[in-house]
Amino acid sequence: MTADAIRLCAADDLADGDMRRFDLDGQDPIVLCRIGDDYLAVDDECTHAIASLSEGRLEGEVIFCPLHGGSFNVRSGKACSLPCKQKLRTYPIEIADGAIWVTP
């Protein structure tokens, strides 16, 4: 695990298909998504307008903005549908000691 990794939660805290927002000290909020056994983290703020993606919905690998319905792939951060055009930042995730760690 990298020295600057931050513990988010226990791996069991998220069920398959769940997502949760995390506010990290000195960082922009991120949203952690669980897809099967994979945990993925991206910026929580939509790149189109100020909206929290964690308040939207997750369908497979796609997260939908609650404000205008634009969407992003949580694996790549790539914008999938308008009005979103700019990709989200993605974050490396590690699983250690039964916990999810992110490197901002």
Rank of each mutant, 00 (worst) to 15 (best):
M1G: 13
T2P: 10
T2E: 15
A3W: 01
L8A: 05
L8S: 06
C9E: 00
C9V: 05
A10G: 12
A10D: 12
D12R: 13
L14G: 03
D16S: 09
D18Y: 01
R20G: 10
F22K: 05
L24T: 08
D28Y: 14
D28R: 14
P29T: 07
I30K: 05
L32Y: 08
L32S: 01
R34G: 04
D37V: 12
Y39W: 10
V42E: 04
D43Y: 06
D43I: 00
E45H: 14
E45L: 15
E45Y: 15
T47E: 03
H48F: 06
H48Y: 07
I50G: 13
A51D: 12
S52N: 15
S52Y: 13
S52M: 11
S54C: 14
E55M: 12
E55H: 11
G56N: 04
R57E: 14
R57A: 15
E59N: 08
E61R: 13
V62W: 02
I63N: 02
I63C: 00
F64P: 01
F64Y: 13
F64I: 09
C65F: 02
L67W: 11
L67F: 13
H68W: 01
G69F: 04
N73P: 01
N73E: 08
V74S: 05
R75Y: 06
G77A: 05
K78W: 09
A79Q: 05
S81M: 06
P83R: 02
K85L: 13
Q86C: 12
Q86G: 04
L88S: 01
L88G: 05
T90H: 13
T90G: 09
T90S: 11
P92F: 06
I93Q: 06
I93G: 05
E94G: 11
I95N: 08
I95H: 09
G98V: 07
A99G: 07
P104F: 01
P104K: 08
